[in-house]
Design a protein around this nucleic acid. Structure first.
Lengths: 108, 108
DNA sequence: ATCACATATTGGCAATTCGCGATATGACGA
DNA sequence: TCGTCATATCGCGAATTGCCAATATGTGAT
């Protein structure tokens, strides 16, 4: 909770734009706005996010590619991963995304 | 003046994020917010923009690279090019950048 | 301990990007 | 017309990305 600076550093921005320069990764981020739109998603799961295989099925990509793309989104600070059992759930990092949008408004 | 849609299409977003996924190109866009910060820039020139060689000198890149990067920014709809004599002046497309930021706020 | 399952990591290859030097285009002046 | 200057385009090798199959890691059930 809470971030060092208000604005993103050059390095952070690089990771963000590289992450979002791929349509599949951008899609994933948009899909995660509405976790309930994934089949078999329970209302109780919304807070923790969506598991990799559900995202993979929707993306139509391979398992390894999906996992890698989610890692890239996580390293860019756009999503948060939570491991529970054998599943890893991903959800948007809304606070950081909001901070990003503020940075973009300042910088551009 | 004026654009077809309020929000950017998938193709437009791809061009934008690819363009901004390079630090040098992002720098150029930020520099162009203040054309007067370029040496030898006259107040009368502000509206038309900054010529390629001035941007090149500041970026420390080769001439061809600078020209290509500005073309990429132009194709992404982020800057506007104006040819006057042997010079090409580049300035920010503020209207389109504002439209982009609205799209980002909607989509992300 | 062993198995099955979800996810992460590795290795690979085709396609793209990075940045450059060389060259082409286009505008102006002599 | 010829030469010069500003910019654009071309062609290149090195580095990175896109996506995959294969393999490794970790977790829960038996």
């Amino acid at each position: 909770m809470g971030y060092d600076r208000l604005v993103f550093s050059e390095t952070e921005l690089l990771a963000v734009f590289r992450a979002l320069s791929n349509p599949a990764r951008r899609q994933m981020l948009v899909w995660l706005k509405d976790p309930m739109s994934f089949p078999g998603q329970e209302p109780a799961d919304v807070e923790i996010g969506v598991c990799v295989s559900d995202i993979q099925q929707r993306a139509g990509l391979g398992q390894s590619t999906t996992s890698q793309y989610l890692t890239i989104l996580r390293q860019a600070g756009l999503v948060i991963a939570t491991r529970r059992g054998k599943w890893t759930y991903y959800r948007r990092d809304e606070a950081n995304i909001a901070r990003l949008l503020e940075t973009l408004r300042d910088v551009f």
